[in-house]
Amino acid sequence: MIRKQRRLVLIGSSVGVLALAAGLILYAMSSSIVFFNSPTDLADGKLAPGTAVRLGGLVKEGSVQRGANLAVRFEVTDGNRAIPVTFVGILPDLFREGQGVVTEGKMQSDGVFKADTVLAKHDENYMPKEVVDALKKQGRWEEGSGKPK
């Protein structure tokens, strides 16, 4: 093989691998991305039931009910609308009423959000950024103090 051919093989295989990577990314993007929604977004019913989404907001005060066999029911609110959420399992350490929370799951046809995961937080001061933005949209975020009104 002469130098030019060798270089061609090299460039050809590089382009091939990059194309493969790009193809994989595009395929994965179309099938495995989860969108974030605020309670207001979900309550408006823009979403078809059965789509996996993230729902974030504050755990409504006084809404947490524990049932048998680790079933939990609570409401997630952004101050405007509240969405009932059901979850079975162990809640993270910092799950509390009035605190920010992000859940991932599916909206059911009866208007109840069935969560597969409730995301843990690392720090008591930590508020998920998505939740902050959702609260800001409803004018329920106190700038500067880093706390909901």
């Binding site: 989860v34 969108f35 991932e104």
Partner: peptide
Amino acid sequence: DEKISVGAPFFNLTFAPL
């Protein structure tokens, strides 16, 4: 201004085949 999360399924689909 659209919020999405890219989690394990994405990386399993792209990273593993490579």
